[in-house]
Structures are given as C-alpha cells and as structure tokens.
C-alpha cells in the first residue's frame, strides 16, 4: 500500500506526515513524528493513555487512523504547557502528587483538560465518570480526582 500524505495541525503547528492507510494516529505520533508523550497501554481504546483531542473532541488516538487527521486540529500532551509555564492541571498534578509512575498522566491530563473546557465546575462524580476511560493502576485515582477538582476551582477563581 502506498503511504498517504497528510496535512494537519498539531498543537497549533502546521504538520505534514506520510503514513500507511491503516496506521493509527497513535503510531503516527509516536513513530513518524517522534511525539512519544501519548502512550500505548492497550491499543484497543480501553485505557486512555493515548488520549488526544481531534478538533476539540477527546479521542483515543489508538482508535483513530492517521489519515483522519487530514485538515483537522490535533492537540497532544506536548502542546499542553506554554514553554516553561505548565498548564494549571499539570502544575496541580505535581503539587498534589497525582501521579506515581506517570504512564497514565499524559492521557489523564488531556482528558481532564477537555473536561474542564466543557464543564468548568464539575462535581466529583462528573470528574470520575469523565475520567472513567483513563486507567491508572498506581494511585487509586484519589489524588487525580482531587487535583482536577482543585484546578477547576482555581481556574474558576482566576477567570
């Protein structure tokens, strides 16, 4: 199969890549573009470690084809901080120790950011259900949920 030439936007940067028609967006990011912040925990849409946003919508990049990125706006963990300034969620995850091994963290952060964009004032239950697609085996979720709620409160205060 001939490789496809795709033009897209990733973290605000116009980006081009070549990919096999059956190659997942996760493999494109990791293997073609060397953006390894998105992780593969399962490859089947069950762990959320590969979470990115596609035109603002939260998706598992392991379930998306690279060719679907054509003409779209993609956001990944690599675009979350602004230079040396961390996103408030990233900062709060560190302050509140919301990660242990950190393999789930990029996906958690992307999913949490997309939650707060949709719902700046989520209840604990809403956070838990929104993040239900993001597995973490280390933390028991407690500190993650608290960090998301605290960030939401802080961002509301700042807004």
């Amino acid at each position: 199969m001939a490789k496809q030439h795709i033009t897209t936007t990733i973290n605000g940067e116009p980006t081009e890549f070549l990919c096999e028609p059956n190659e997942t967006m996760l493999d494109v990011l990791r293997n073609e573009l060397n953006m390894t912040g998105s992780k593969e925990g399962c490859g089947s849409g069950d762990c959320g470690a590969c979470s990115i946003t596609l035109d603002g919508r939260l998706v598992c990049s392991c379930l998306m084809l690279g060719v679907e990125a054509a003409g779209a706006e993609i956001e990944t963990i690599e675009g979350m901080a602004d230079g040396e300034t961390l996103h408030p969620l990233q900062q709060k995850f560190l302050e509140m120790a919301a990660l242990q091994c950190g393999i789930c963290t990029p996906g958690m952060l992307i999913a949490a950011k997309s939650l707060l964009e949709e719902n700046p004032d989520p209840t604990e239950t809403e956070v838990r259900y929104w993040l239900a697609g993001n597995l973490c085996r280390c933390t028991g979720y407690d500190k993650i949920i608290r960090a998301v709620m605290d960030t939401a409160a802080e961002m509301r205060g700042a807004a």
Partner: peptide, 23 residues
C-alpha cells in the same frame, strides 16, 4: 514535606522517556 518530585515536569509534559519511547 510535600515537595514537588525532581522528575515531575518531564512526567507531566510527556517528555519522560519510558522504554517504548526510545529509538
């Protein structure tokens, strides 16, 4: 004290290199 872990920034920005991230 609840200090910020030395490897923290790398872990939250996706730049920490796990085994599958190396080429």
């Amino acid at each position: 004290q609840r200090t910020i872990r030395p490897d923290g920034a790398e872990k939250v920005t996706g730049s920490a290199a796990f085994a599958a991230d190396t080429t």
